[in-house]
Write a protein that binds this DNA or RNA. Structure first.
Lengths: 211, 211
DNA sequence: AACCTCGTATGACAACCGTCATGCCCACAG
DNA sequence: CTGTGGGCATGACGGTTGTCATACGAGGTT
């Protein structure tokens, strides 16, 4: 198993992805590259930074966004604090402009979507190690075109709390607000997203990665 | 590429999955098994049956549920009609009881969730070829416990049409119904799901795989 | 100091939504 | 041939939601 022994010069990779089958398949794929080696795998975002510490550092952390415990973007931010030398590649199912923006803010060096060809993944890892940043041009354009998240912090809170179908009274309760205030915030969210009701506002905000 | 030549006895597999990176990674994984060979890959549900025809038949079709064009469950049903000898393995991100139920109705021989260990996939394929059915026991129990979909066909239509945040008038328009009828159906959906409004009804129905 | 944005709140009004009773037609099972 | 269940419709009622005007304090900018 430890073929390269103490002189192994391959790129050391930590893989974080919650779906075991996908995680193992990606690990197999990367291990087939002659210059790469997956030295650790985790299935939760909150295990990322600890795993890097336990491994004595890695060259690249490949992080899925959709993970239990801590999402990949927050995990990237934590990693940046605790292991600033580690390069972060964010991998996601959904190419949402807001996700790209947040990934960049969290210090990610690359942003990949899962429907890109597999060969691009290894390529991105090599380019990141060479100091480049790797971002899908279409996605970058979309992120710029969409502009910044127009929702204020509190508006996001209220909209997110409404996403599961809670009624005003419950949202007010959860966030310790008056019911009228909840209505005001939701009204603002609806106008800013251009929606016609809270449900559509939730959908639009999620599509753009604003929640 | 054609290592086994005309005497190849390996299991011939068609892989249908929309995310190219995942699809290629799974293909790599399965091709590493000495007795398996991925002979075709497609990224859309509506290409499944045609691909099997073009390949002159396959032993196993591995179908993701979440696909553009035609979802994996409908693709499985089409495959059953056009190539009844092909074994179908359904693979999905979401282990929803309703999905399992529909997969079985569509004639699937196995139902796998993507967070199972990768080794189980190859194992499932071999067992399916041996004539077994392979289903996660937890999921089977959940499917039985949940009972059948209580929504009538039209109730499903209306609830599905409301999922994107459309208002009653739009739903009525889309389905050529009166606005009052839309309200009646949605009211029924809300009661049958035990929800407090349409948004929650949509969430619950989706969780159970009723849409 | 004047101004802006954000968070919070209230009250009023109109529009929309959820419920219920009731009716009709059609198909299918008993 | 008489229930029973699904599909469709109307009307009425009360509750929820969306909008708007207005207000106040805290924090930051000009």
């Amino acid at each position: 198993m430890n073929a390269g022994s103490d002189q192994d010069r391959r790129i050391r990779i930590l893989l974080a992805e919650d779906q075991a089958m996908i995680r193992e398949a990606l690990a197999t794929l990367l291990d087939l590259e002659p210059d790469m080696r997956v030295v650790g795998q985790v299935g939760r975002g909150d295990q990322v930074a600890d795993a890097v510490t336990a491994l004595g550092g890695v060259d690249v952390a490949l992080l899925d966004i959709e993970m239990p415990g801590l999402d990949g973007l927050s995990a990237a931010a934590e990693l940046r604090r605790r292991h600033p030398e580690t390069k972060v590649v964010v991998l996601t199912t959904f190419g949402r402009p807001g996700f790209l923006r947040r990934a960049m803010e969290a210090g990610a060096a690359a942003f990949m979507v899962k429907d890109a060809p597999a060969a691009r993944l290894a390529e991105a890892i090599r380019r990141v190690l060479a100091g480049e940043r790797v971002i899908d041009p279409d996605l970058a354009a979309a992120a710029l075109a969409d502009g910044v998240n127009p929702l204020t912090g509190r508006e996001r809170d209220v909209l997110a709390a409404s996403a599961d179908g809670s009624v005003n009274a419950e949202i007010a309760d959860k966030l310790c607000l008056s019911e009228g205030t909840v209505r005001n915030y939701l009204s603002a969210c609806i106008q800013k997203t251009g929606a016609r009701n809270r449900a559509e506002a939730v959908r639009i905000a999620q599509e753009k990665g604003w929640l």
